[in-house]
Design a protein around this nucleic acid. Structure first.
Length: 159
DNA sequence: GCCAACGTTGGC
DNA sequence: GCCAACGTTGGC
């Protein structure tokens, strides 16, 4: 099992929105970056643990924990001409973009980006790398344990 | 709103 | 295959 951090704009889907969805599950639509797509396709597995991160908002940071509950499959929004994620070059026969389904596990206190940056234990965290723009990044097990236990105050890994 | 960094596009 | 122009991300 692997650990991930996935960015969502809370104006689009927040941790509370996720909790209130049917089955508390959302397809992680809208990824339009090949590196992130390939991570979903090649590295993610059902059962993987996810930090749900709020980005492009007043308080960026980790807002909760979720779980990957499906393999990667074609992102429906690429075929929808009315969607901002529509891709005219994608076809049903050869889709370009994929998503996984992600299910709510728990809301946590908001662990702010500034707080993550302040911790030497997290100095090598991928999401904190200079000018990182990947919306999906791997999290080392040691980083996951540190955040859930030391920063969130959970007694276990939170999953 | 600014801007740094990076990915993508397309002409050559 | 190079690379300039352009678009996007995302914190501040």
């Amino acid at each position: 099992m692997r650990y991930w951090l996935m960015k969502s704009e809370p104006d689009d889907v927040s941790i509370d929105d996720l909790a209130q969805r049917p089955d508390a599950t959302v397809p992680w639509y809208g990824v339009r970056n090949y590196q992130a797509r390939n991570l979903m396709r090649d590295q993610m597995s059902v059962g993987d643990a996810v930090f749900f991160y709020h980005s492009s908002c007043p308080q960026p940071g980790i807002a909760g924990i979720a779980r990957v509950v499906s393999p990667a499959y074609p992102d429906a929004t690429q075929f929808d001409a009315a969607s901002p994620y529509f891709d005219p070059k994608a076809t049903r026969e050869s889709p370009r973009w994929l998503n996984v389904d992600v299910r709510f596990v728990r809301k946590t206190r908001l662990v702010a980006l500034a707080e993550l940056r302040a911790r030497p234990e997290l100095a090598n965290m991928r999401v904190l790398a200079r000018a990182n723009r990947l919306s999906i990044t791997p999290v080392d097990p040691a980083e996951w344990h540190f955040i859930t236990r030391e920063l969130m105050g959970l007694e276990d890994d939170g999953i």
